[in-house]
Design a protein around this nucleic acid. Structure first.
Lengths: 270, 270
DNA sequence: GAGTGGTCTAGACCACTGT
DNA sequence: CAGTGGTCTAGACCACTCC
């Protein structure tokens, strides 16, 4: 037992359980002893036992389910997002016929799901640019923007894959009235195809990735529990004339996401 | 006061404090009322008050300091890691004279620190490849590997920027005995220059990024608190002959890191 | 030494899950 | 219904920080 013999008793209990989980004595999906039982077994009050369990939750080793028990966590598979290939493929598809765009969009490539398995909700509105968004576009802070909000929910499993917000200059979006219609989402071929309808070709995309604790809203809407961070990706699309034409913030559950980038390195000259 | 009127009382207290923080009534760095005071003010026991404070910590809004108090969190600036430019610059520098490599390495570019401000610890050992590493290299699971472990600590602020583990095939590393010597780290010019000394040129680097809760070790060594995730970057370097030549896992504090990638998009043909 | 948060107890009642 | 975790109390003592 005595894995750790320093520090508070509840931490010793947690370290002990941790060792058992890592050794496989408690298999993924198996229930931990109940709180009263742990209290007796380790000679602690239930309050202290709960402190220990909170540590295990914070380490991502167990999940607690009210009325059922506490269980060793099943690692849920992560969704891989191959960003580099995704963006290049999206650009390539713009020039292809619609049936091909519709059946081989970037979404399926990332998730293994086809569009029919995904509930896609979109809300559009026209608002003045908040300060940080205006800064990225390099426009005045009250410039009119088209803001689009999305939520992707696979139909089987009720957990959303991601939520997001995308910003376009209204002056750009207005040039094709279809871009203002949420009912046309998801647009086959994605944002790059939308931009191409108003004569915009992208030169490059810059992704900035951070992790942060979820807001209470995000915990609900992404179905994540305390202790799990969200990954936030800010995607900035830059056109061939060096203008910023789209800024999108994508929020993904940190425990179910893997982001992949490929950096090509120019060959040395002989 | 009554921001939220449903759910447990400690959650209502937390929501209330949250509103005050977001409204600026409690400025960053300001102390919250002490636990006994909150208990009296909200008509709760200290235990319940502590439950509420735990929520605020989980939301990343406050930090607790034993013996001092609980404070509204100061957003610490994130360290930006421009991966794409970093890797390309590192490749470019390999062909330049040493004084230039020494003074304009990728580390300073990312952190704004020069090498002299950073304590760099390295440990090397030779071990058989664990299963997942062997899988990435495409070699048998017990192939001999050179494992290198690093810790970067800026001298001023005591918080490590990152820790990491890097794997090379021992068969490769042995071809230049200097590569087996930890006392030569940090190697001016970085890994790509090391590889160049044994005739290896990189074609591309693939980065996979995940977020996960820190292990207890990582909490200590990275100086992060409960509720903050770590970002883990697995960097796979692929040589011009398509061999995997290095795999590195870099662990960074999730609350102080921003990862940036640029994806260049080939131009459409006219 | 006064004040802070950290640990701990021994209860109580409630809400939810299963049978 | 019995068993689980969730909330809550009213205390106690300890470890740490600051004056």
């Amino acid at each position: 037992m005595g894995t750790e013999t320093t520090g508070p008793k509840y931490a010793q209990m947690a370290a002990d359980l941790r060792a058992m989980i890592e050794a496989g004595d408690l298999a993924p999906g198996a229930p931990l002893p109940s709180e009263p039982e742990l209290a007796e077994r380790y000679g602690l009050s239930r309050t202290s036992v709960r402190n220990g369990i909170r540590l295990l939750v914070g380490w991502g080793l167990v999940v607690v389910e009210r009325g059922r028990g506490t269980f060793v966590r099943q690692a849920r598979p992560r969704v891989r997002r191959h960003a580099t290939e995704r963006y290049r493929r999206e650009k390539d598809l713009v020039r292809r016929p619609e049936f091909e765009r519709r059946t081989s969009g970037p979404l399926e490539q990332d998730t293994g799901l086809s569009l029919s398995d995904v509930t896609f909700r979109a809300e559009f509105d026209i608002v003045p640019a908040p300060k940080d968004i205006a800064g990225v576009f390099g426009v005045a802070p009250d410039t009119q923007m088209l803001r689009r909000r999305h939520l992707h929910v696979p139909k089987g499993d009720g957990f959303p894959l991601r939520g997001g917000e995308s910003w376009l200059l209204l002056a750009d979006a207005e040039r094709n009235p279809d871009l203002l219609r949420p009912d046309l989402e998801p647009w086959p071929g994605g944002t790059q195809h939308q931009l191409s309808t108003i004569g915009i070709e992208l030169d490059r995309i810059t992704d900035s990735i951070i992790a942060r604790p979820p807001t209470p809203d995000e915990m609900r809407s992404l179905g994540i529990t305390a202790g799990v961070s969200v990954l936030v990706l800010r995607k900035v699309s830059i056109a061939t004339d060096e203008r910023v034409v789209e800024v999108a913030d994508v929020v993904m559950p940190g425990d179910r996401t893997e982001l992949i980038y490929t950096v090509d390195l120019p060959r040395w000259e002989k």
